[in-house]
Each structure stands twice: as structure tokens, then as C-alpha cells.
């Protein structure tokens, strides 16, 4: 019995610790939805100068409690992040049910780091408008402190909500509020 366990441990060590998984073939290829994603992630701001949009973008990220990690005004790049709660009521309920059934609770999502990258540039062929594109990622940690998810965020409603706030920030900046 002990030998069987040791064989199992040996196999697990070899499989999990020493063999790295291969790079997915599609990792550096544009996804079939990349154009749709770009459309969802981009907004044009008419009659707004690039520098004003960049300032408004920094302002709205601060409004939302993000810490700026990187900025480059000439390239129009802003990267920011913040930690938020990742608790999901359904997941917690599921964990409680599992605990009742088998006597030990499964880990659930606990907190997450949201990383955003905003790139602002002048409208192509239109000096009177500017474009802002935001991309979002998240890293989720569970109650055991392990990373349970690391992914791009593609929920359209989040992008819509952000651009609504950015539009408001553009207005506030323009009126020096």
C-alpha cells in the first residue's frame, strides 16, 4: 500500500512539478473576435483634444480608486490597478452545501486585482477628435490565497460603464470641476 502511494507521489511530482505545459498555438494570434473586442473597448470623443482626454482618463481612474502603475503622455498610455472583493454569493452557497455534504468546505473566490490599460490617441484623419481604448484583466485569489483565475475581462457592460464615467470626467475637466 505504501509503495503504491509512493509511486503515485512520484508520478505527481513528475507530472505537476517538472513538466511545463506547452504554449497554446493561438497565444500570439489575433482572436476571431478581436475586431469586435476592439470596437467594444474603444470610444471616440468628438471635439476633445488628445491631451485633455488623457487628463480626464487619469482623473476617472483616480475617481474609481485605481492606483496608476505606468504612464507615458507622449504615447498616451495609462496603466492602473486596484484590489477589490471577489466574493460571489452563489459560489459561497455552493461551498456551504459541499461542506454540509462532505464535511469540508471548498475554497471560494476571495479578492481580485483589476488591471486596466488605457491608450489615448488622436482620431485618425481627424485632429478634432480623440480615441480612448481600454483593456481589462483580472487576477482572482481564493480563500486559500491561491490564484483561481487570471484572465482578460470582456463583459461589454463594464466597458460601457467605464466610458460613461469617462464622458462625465471629460465634461468635468472641460469645466474645471
Amino acid at each position: 500500500m505504501l509503495i503504491k502511494h509512493l509511486v503515485l507521489i512520484t508520478v505527481m511530482v513528475v507530472v505537476t512539478g517538472c513538466v511545463s505545459s506547452k504554449l497554446p498555438k493561438e497565444a500570439f494570434k489575433l482572436s476571431p473576435t478581436s475586431l469586435e473586442d476592439k470596437h467594444m473597448q474603444t470610444r471616440q470623443f468628438v471635439s476633445v483634444q488628445r491631451d485633455d482626454l488623457l487628463l480626464a482618463s487619469a482623473g476617472v481612474l483616480q475617481d474609481l480608486g485605481y492606483a496608476l502603475d505606468e504612464s507615458n503622455s507622449k504615447l498616451g498610455v495609462l496603466s492602473a490597478s486596484k484590489m477589490i472583493d471577489a466574493t460571489d454569493a452563489g459560489q459561497v452557497l455552493g461551498s456551504i452545501l459541499v461542506a454540509i455534504l462532505i464535511g469540508s468546505s471548498a475554497p471560494v473566490d476571495d479578492k481580485q486585482k483589476i488591471r486596466v490599460c488605457l491608450v489615448v490617441h488622436q482620431g485618425l484623419g481627424d485632429s478634432q477628435s480623440s480615441l480612448a481604448r481600454i483593456t481589462i484583466q483580472r487576477i482572482v485569489w481564493n480563500t486559500q490565497g491561491k490564484i483561481s483565475k487570471a484572465q482578460s475581462v470582456k463583459e461589454p457592460e463594464l466597458y460601457t460603464a467605464f466610458f460613461e464615467k469617462l464622458s462625465k470626467a471629460v465634461f468635468l475637466e472641460a469645466n474645471s470641476i
Binding site: S31, D37, L75, S79, C117, H121
Partner: peptide, 20 residues
Amino acid sequence: LRSVIATLQDLEFIIDKADI
């Protein structure tokens, strides 16, 4: 550099550092 940044965004990367 802007094209590189746009491509990285298309490929779902987040920019960590940009030094012109």
C-alpha cells in the same frame, strides 16, 4: 511604438511599462 501598443492590446496584453 503606438502600433506595437495597439497590437499588444489586440492580443489582450496589458501594458506594464512604456518608455519612449
